[in-house]
């Protein structure tokens, strides 16, 4: 009876999260705090804020990143020797390309309607080529995060 067979499937069949079976590649060493949690450096956080152009907002935001990294680290133990990365499930098909003809257009006015600030047929942006201010002069939670003993550097 299937009712019995499914119920009796060992729950252990679901690979254990921490399981390191034979043949798995070694995990690079991480700097960890006392509780075994990986810590990211202030420099890295600053770098990410600049790249992402969103800020961490608060300590929870930083912890969220640390947890996300910790979760992702489970991948490192999987043996993928000789496996090619997969971008798309349609990799074995030709990608459709339409003829390079103009089929629609002249929507400038329509498109500009959704912008907050425009002038004639232009979107308006503040001055460009000015990087975000340094950490000290930026409106970010990270300012308050002075480097401390529990902020060990992460090795890459």
């Amino acid at each position: 009876m299937w009712a019995l067979r499914v119920s009796s499937l060992a729950r252990a069949a679901f690979c254990s999260r921490s399981g390191n079976s034979a043949g798995l590649s070694s995990v690079p060493p991480f700097q960890e705090d006392g509780r075994g949690r990986k810590k990211v450096t202030l420099e890295l956080l600053d770098h990410l804020e600049r790249l992402a152009l969103v800020d961490f907002r608060n300590q929870e935001g930083v912890e969220r990143l640390e947890k996300a990294i910790e979760f992702a680290d489970q991948l490192l133990s999987i043996n993928t020797d000789g496996v090619e990365p997969m971008d798309s499930v349609l990799e074995d098909r030709c990608l459709y390309l339409r003829e390079d003809n103009v089929t629609e257009g002249n929507f400038a006015e329509e498109l500009l309607k959704n912008a907050n600030q425009t002038l004639e047929e232009y979107f308006i942006a503040p001055p460009g080529n000015i990087p975000l201010p340094k950490l000290e002069d930026r409106d970010t939670f990270l300012q308050k995060k002075k480097p401390s003993a529990d902020m060990l550097p992460l090795t890459f």
Binding site: L48, L51, A52, F56, G61, L65, A68, A72
Partner: peptide, 10 residues
């Protein structure tokens, strides 16, 4: 934000 930041990290 969390997903953007972790995505940038990865």
């Amino acid at each position: 934000r969390g997903r953007i930041l972790s995505g940038n990290y990865f």
